[in-house]
Design a protein around this nucleic acid. Structure first.
Lengths: 402, 402
DNA sequence: GCATTAAGTTTAGTGGCTGAACAAATGCCG
DNA sequence: CGGCATTTGTTCAGCCACTAAACTTAATGC
């Protein structure tokens, strides 16, 4: 019986305050005294909480700073040699894996280009597992947990509900299979655009806690971040930017509708319009000033802009981060795209509306690992110290695992 | 310094648990023992919390039930004679006011049709204040607070940022002015569609905690409810369904864009297309089977469906509630509307996707009062007993006032 | 009447936060 | 070089809210 809310006790308070400390430290290392100021807690409480976290090797004490009057502060920071998080991405034409330490630093990254559209589930999973093993062997640090990014809609239980470009995995739960292949506890599983958004946010906190990350891989997806949290909608279908309407009676779309964004700005259509066989060549053609390529990109940008404008008028998110294909074509696509936004979006144009994700192909894998970190840092009470804790999830945050 | 989070102490725990009790009682009256079961708290704690709420006359004890073995339970319920909430709506062509008691029962409602488009701010505010006074005189119960619904985008500080159909109030903060005229503490101020959505949810909890309420007044707005909470976006501009794109190069729209929903399904366009002077006549024409009227409504429904499909693909909300004008035209508009939804929305069609708000013109005013109730019931610790408490807002919910 | 059953209250105990006093570590200054 | 100011961090008594369990209350039923 999961009622409308969970009863709170002193443990809840401790949990919340531990979370406060660890997220504060994720933002910036601080002395205990400074933490007390930043969080509003007492020095005494902070000391107790920090002790708790040190005992679990989540945080470590640094060397005393040698500056200023008074007793020198002993800085406390997230433990770079503490437990690490694994991130894996299975996409349509590549797989990737990486490891982040508690501070969010990338410790290892690999990807491998491969055509997964026609592969069987076992093949794809095994390929991803091999890559994951490769990044894991290089470290002797305990594993906090793992995350998996998939190119499609992921349901609450981790089922890949819809992935037109990856039929082999559709309807399955790749999380448990990959976890099984690696001998790991359940993975956190989510959409590639969602996790890319998280990674992008982590890489550039300046874009602000409310943003849309547009992921232009084979499909067109958007990761929606609202107040620093992913927005998934009721069933995980949120962010399907590719099927926002550009023109009511436009070209037929695979979704059954007509005139969807994907039919104007999707990778296949874009390449076809530009007359280029793949993204590499398109990029080069654009760089070389090829008329047809430039026109095709401009056209895609305009359509994407129309779709994004609808999205922004519905969700009011002040910042747009372009990732994937659109990040690669950033200079060429931006003018027509932002022209549509400027014209159609009602909200007052905040500074720096449009930006480019610096992460490229790494985004979703990093986001998958980052989501594991976020979960751990938001509920450090749930961590036992090393192996996968299957403690009850925090009452203040429940990401999906499966 | 409002950092990333607020420190928690024992008071926070009490606050949270009080909230648990009052929201549980809002869902259904219960004995203390039953409350303990429902909330997961101990009988002892529940007793203490209930005492607290009784002392503040938020809840009252009923007569012991005379059934079954064992000591009979004494039911506890929200106090219908406790403090009440005032709701006011200022719209383009009417103003309305109502009073709800703590149980959510409508104690009094009035509205008055008037053309506010050309009126001055003072005139409109005074008109609303008069109506509010009229509903307030009828009761001797203390006032919990008041809420105000406005036909446009309301900023975080209560400023009416955008209201093309109500220029007289645009850029002002009608909340404090109305509060001043009534001698009340600050009002909770929000968009008419948002508050209509809340009212609709309260009237029919069965539609579920994730839904879109479509408010077809002069403009086309949507109130978005996610997990039982209003979704406002970063600046309060969320839900501008009227400016979602139907056709990229459709008719020019007042917003600067082209082909927006409002240009197909807005009231003015609809009436013009149907060749009717006002809604009354349109309704009658539709009822009479007038071809032009039916065709116009069908066309509007289709366009609204396209816009809603984009919205749903972005936000994944399983239920749509039609309010305002669209509720009045429900039978006529539904077929073309749901045809578009069925065709274009990706999420699996949950049961009862489309429904009709039963509240009519009362929706937003009821929602305004309801929002005040919700706030109070979610943080009953902030209530002193009668007059407007300006206690600090709860760390778990901060609605906008101004 | 007296057991049975269930509701609600009382009480001792515990966990966690607070505030204030205290200990530690450094720079400043005469 | 030694005391003082200054700031950090710890210790300790006190308090608050929840829990568990015993207890009281109030009804049914045989």
């Amino acid at each position: 019986m999961t009622g409308p809310g969970t009863p709170a006790g002193q443990q809840t308070v401790r949990r919340h305050n531990l979370s406060l400390i660890s997220t504060a430290l994720a933002a910036a290392p601080s002395s205990r005294a400074e933490l007390a100021q930043r969080t509003g807690l007492t020095k005494a409480t902070v000391s107790s909480l920090v002790d708790h976290l040190i005992a679990r090797s989540i945080v470590v004490e640094g060397e005393p700073a040698t500056a200023g009057v008074g007793r020198p502060a002993r800085p406390v920071r997230l433990n770079p040699d503490g437990p690490v998080a694994l991130g894996v991405e299975i996409n349509v034409d590549y797989v990737a894996a990486c490891v982040l330490d508690l501070t969010g630093e990338l410790r290892c990254y690999r990807h491998s280009l491969t055509e997964n559209r026609a592969s069987s589930a076992d093949q794809v999973i095994e390929h991803a597992a091999a890559l994951a093993r490769a990044v894991l062997v290089e470290l002797g640090q305990p594993l906090l947990g793992g995350g998996l990014a998939l190119p499609g809609v992921v349901g609450a239980d981790g089922t890949l509900l819809r992935a037109p470009n990856l039929p082999g995995l559709t309807g399955l739960r790749p999380g448990p299979r990959l976890a099984g292949a690696l001998g790991l506890p359940p993975l956190l599983v989510d959409n590639e655009a969602n996790l890319g958004a998280l990674a992008s946010l982590r890489a550039e906190p300046a874009v602000g806690p409310d943003c849309v990350y547009v992921s232009g891989e084979i499909g067109v997806g958007a990761g929606l971040v609202v107040a620093g949290e992913l927005f998934r909608g009721a069933n995980g279908f949120a962010g399907e930017l590719g099927h926002v309407v550009v023109t009511e009676d436009g070209p037929d779309c695979g979704c059954g509708g007509r005139g969807c964004v994907e039919q104007y700005a999707g990778q296949e259509v874009l390449l076809r319009t530009a007359g280029q066989p793949d993204l590499e060549r398109l990029e080069r053609a654009v760089a070389a000033g090829d008329r047809a390529a430039l026109a095709a990109v401009e056209q895609a940008g305009s359509a994407l802009g129309v779709g994004l404008a609808s999205l922004l008028n519905v969700m009011d998110l002040p910042n747009v981060v372009l990732g994937g294909m659109y990040a690669r074509l950033f200079e060429a696509i931006t003018p027509s795209l932002s022209a549509q936004l400027d014209r159609r979006v009602l909200a007052p144009p905040g500074a720096g509306r449009l930006s480019r994700s610096p992460l490229g192909i790494e985004a979703a894998a990093r986001g998958a690992a980052g989501a594991v970190l976020d979960r751990a840092l938001r509920d450090p009470a749930g961590l036992s110290g090393s192996g996968g804790s299957s403690g009850s999830s925090s009452p203040w945050h429940t990401p999906r695992t499966g």
